[in-house]
Design a protein around this nucleic acid. Structure first.
Length: 747
RNA sequence: GCGGGCGUGGUGGAACUGGUAGACACACAGGACUUAAAAUCCUGAGGCCUUUGUGCCGUGCGGGUUCGAGUCCCGCCGCCCGCACCA
């Protein structure tokens, strides 16, 4: 991070307090108590998006669930728009759009109300609301289930010690994600029953079950074991009914039975009274309409996405501009006192949040009543800053967070490049912020990044010593013998096992320090190798051999310029009137390469651009051998070739390119020279080589003028020796000619 | 389990809308230069063959469409990524 960016970051942090201070008024920021993801290593809370496979995204520690009061951004406010607008992001990779769509997880269904039987039912409860995407299976219901955190379950636990201990067990079991994943389905029969919403005489038992999530839907479900695997597992364990109500089209209603697998596919409704015979979609509509008549159901859309928990219990992060007062409760820091800055004199001696241990920063007067009060000591997730920096960067020196004129001019970002690892973190948060800041009047764009490109990561081989300990590449000496590669420890000489190629990680030690690479080979080589080896969206494997190859090419180019300079025309020599075929051929090659490299760079296909440059370099190397300084055309073509060559590799190896540029006697900087425009006429060849096939197999090739008529091509093709031999005495049935492509003779 | 993507030489990868598969690079082998090595330069190379050819096979496997398939369609197999008790 250069000093300019570092400086920028400080400004960003302090202006962030101004940006977010407008959010509570728009109801986009709020505080509530909830279960949160606790990272026991970083000693902080994490957002759902920051928990990867049940582990903290940064620390890798197993995440626990804790109940805490926290600040949230109401990202769910925009859930529908965030999902539907994905369709407008046509310059985003499909993969990222799909990941965001799954993460937001819109699902349409119904909210169904089950009336509670009044016997044994605690006061204040008269019904259970459940969310379902399969209302069509309502006649297959055999139980209702409550989450252990459901208010009704908690209420009943007050008078039912057995239920209380069951709920406590569920709580204890569910501390880490890993345990949740492997937990068996367990339930507790509350003794309560509910009435089936479409049959007053039908009573359904109510269970509290460990697999029902409190924070999705209503925290309660109806169980239809025949058509949901979880419900089926549960029903088998507690011997509840399994009645199929959807029958696949090729099965007989009378004989169709559910064994160990729930049926979730399409089919015809059965055992479902007025729904019988309908398909699933029609049945969903029909039953909701019916329930709606008596107020027992509503159509409802649920989202998997939950609000973004932004409170962090650490020093590094933007302060939350709030003051807590005993009388006035939560008071925003007045605009005139913004930005709230972090104190510089903090100590990290004690575990926990340093801001909490800093009395002079923490203790303030209430801005409303003047009584003793204290600052909010939680700080914001650092993702908050990265969620709007693109807006701030449009007017980095402004006193206000963003200048409208500047953001209106520059945003959205035309082309954004980043790793896929941010597909649902940074990229979703940024989309939220663009919307939130539009609400607060800071911006007028919903989508911050018009084009997105996700580049791959750098991978490296892994090494282990005889004890299985991971070794860093610097400590390993790889020896090649033919195609066999063996490795030994560089210092001890002990045997080393070469393992799989994996993304560079601290835990496996397979990291190469960029500083070492640059010291050893220089930045140009490092850049060239990384661009040349793989398409940028894919992972690149860092190998010493590959880097060596790039390094040799750097030297080869440099030598080639020295040779070329001897034979080429002077800098300002005019284009000669006459030019021989040899020189013309080189010019054609130069202009065609220039065209191709230009398009490839534009399309971010750097590996192809690199291949073109290699090929052109090989071509010049051959040409040099037969070119003559005294031939004006040849000398001119050579200067042009070298000029283009240098300009083409310039973006990828800027240092070498500037040096070559100076040696070519140009006295301005290469970076200041415009990208040359290829001459159209030189992009087209006079003759072309096309393949000639007989019955789809290539037998020969033909060199003909590019604009040759089809009958001329056919005649020439049939006269080729190899073609005649292949045809033999058979009769030619058909000749297919695709201009500039191919001739296929069918016999 | 659900969703998405990908399978091409020893390796990374080219091949625009179906039209000469393997560009370009790495690694490898042989040769030149050198007292020697390094560096450099040149050459070779997908596989098969008791027919070395004007030959046969070949883009994960099996079918299909087509004059022609790495590319399109159907069915498998394998790998990678994301989500996952989301009702």
């Amino acid at each position: 991070m250069g000093p300019r960016i570092r400086n920028m970051r400080c400004r960003l942090l302090s202006s962030a307090t101004k940006t977010v201070s407008g959010l509570p008024q728009k109801d986009l920021a709020y505080r509530r108590s909830s279960k949160v993801n606790w990272d026991p290593v970083d000693n902080t809370v994490l957002a759902n998006e920051q928990v990867i496979d049940g582990k903290g995204w940064r620390s890798g520690a197993l995440v626990e669930q804790r109940e805490l009061t926290q600040w949230f951004f109401r990202i769910t406010q925009f859930a529908d728009d965030l999902q539907s607008s994905l369709d407008t992001l046509d310059r985003w990779p499909e993969k990222v759009r799909v990941m965001q769509k799954n993460w937001i997880g819109k699902s349409e269904g119904a909210l169904v109300r089950f009336a509670l039987d009044e016997k044994n039912c605690p006061d204040g409860f008269s019904q259970i609301e459940v969310f379902t995407t399969r209302p069509d299976t309502l006649f297959g219901a055999s139980f209702c289930g409550l989450s252990p955190g459901h208010p009704l379950a908690l209420e009943m636990a007050k008078t039912n010690p057995e239920l209380k201990s069951f709920i406590d067990e569920c709580e204890r079991a569910g501390t880490t994600q890993e345990e949740i994943d492997t937990a068996e389905k367990r339930g507790f029969d509350t003794g309560l029953t509910v009435t089936h919403p479409l049959d007053e005489s039908w009573q359904i038992p109510v269970y509290v079950a460990n697999f029902i999530l409190m924070d999705y839907g209503t925290g309660a479900i109806f169980g239809c074991p025949a058509h949901d695997q979880r419900d089926l597992d549960f029903a088998r364990k507690y011997e509840l009914g399994v009645m199929p109500v959807v029958v696949p089209v090729n099965e007989d209603v009378k004989t169709f039975q559910i064994e160990d697998e729930a049926y979730t596919g399409p089919g015809k409704l059965a055992n479902s009274r007025f729904l019988d015979g309908m398909n699933v979609e029609d049945a969903k509509k029909a039953i909701i309409d019916k329930l709606d008549e008596t107020g027992r159901a509503d159509r409802q859309t649920q989202y998997r996405l939950r609000d973004w928990g932004i409170s962090r219990q650490r020093y590094w992060g933007c302060p939350i501009p709030i003051i807590h007062c005993e009388k006035c409760d939560i008071v925003p820091v007045p605009v005139k006192d913004l930005p709230v800055k972090l104190p510089d004199d903090v100590s990290f001696d004690k575990p926990g949040n340093p801001l909490d241990h800093h009395p002079t920063w923490k203790n303030v007067k209430c801005p409303t009543c003047g009584a003793d009060a204290r600052r909010e000591t939680d700080t914001m997730d650092t993702f908050v800053d990265s969620s709007w920096y693109y807006a701030r960067f449009c007017s980095p020196k402004a006193d206000i967070p963003v200048e409208r004129q500047a953001v209106d001019k520059w945003l959205p970002v035309d082309q954004y490049i980043g790793g896929v690892e941010h597909a649902i973190l940074h990229l979703l948060y940024s989309r939220f912020f663009a919307r939130a800041m539009s609400e607060t009047g800071h911006l007028n764009v919903k989508e911050p990044f018009a084009g997105l490109f996700t580049q791959g990561m750098v991978n490296h081989e892994t090494y282990q010593d005889e004890n299985g300990a991971w070794l860093a590449p610097v400590d390993v000496r790889v020896e090649a013998d033919g195609n066999e590669r063996t490795a030994v420890h560089d210092k001890t000489g002990g045997p080393v096992t070469i393992g799989s190629i994996e993304k560079m990680s601290k835990s496996k030690h397979n990291v190469v320090d960029p500083d070492d690479i640059i010291t050893h080979y220089g930045a140009d080589t490092a850049r060239w190798f990384m661009l040349s080896d793989s398409p940028p969206e894919r992972d690149v494997i860092w190998t010493d051999a590959g880097a060596e190859g790039a390094w040799r090419f750097v030297h080869r180019l440099s030598r080639l310029v020295d040779e070329g300079i001897q034979l080429m025309a002077d800098r300002d020599s005019p284009e000669p009137k006459k030019i021989d075929d040899k020189a013309l051929e080189l010019r054609r090659h130069a202009h065609k390469t220039l065209q191709a490299v230009g398009t490839d760079i534009e399309g971010l296909r750097f590996n192809r651009a690199v291949a073109q440059i290699y090929e052109f370099t090989n071509h010049i190397t051959t040409a040099l051998k037969s070119f003559d300084r005294d031939n004006e055309g040849e000398a001119f073509a050579l200067r042009e070739a070298f000029t283009f060559l240098t300009q083409m590799f310039g973006p990828m190896m800027p240092h070498l390119a500037e040096d070559c540029w100076a040696r070519l006697q140009y006295n301005t900087l290469l970076v200041d020279s415009p990208w040359p425009t290829p001459i159209e006429a030189l992009l087209i060849d006079e003759t072309i080589k096309i393949a000639v096939q007989v019955n789809g197999k290539r037998r020969d090739e033909l060199t003909i003028p590019i604009d040759a008529a089809n009958d001329v091509i056919e005649k020439a093709a049939l006269e080729l020796e190899n073609v005649k031999r292949s045809i033999g005495d058979k009769k030619v049935r058909k000749v297919i000619i695709v201009p500039k492509r191919i001739v296929n003779i069918v016999i």
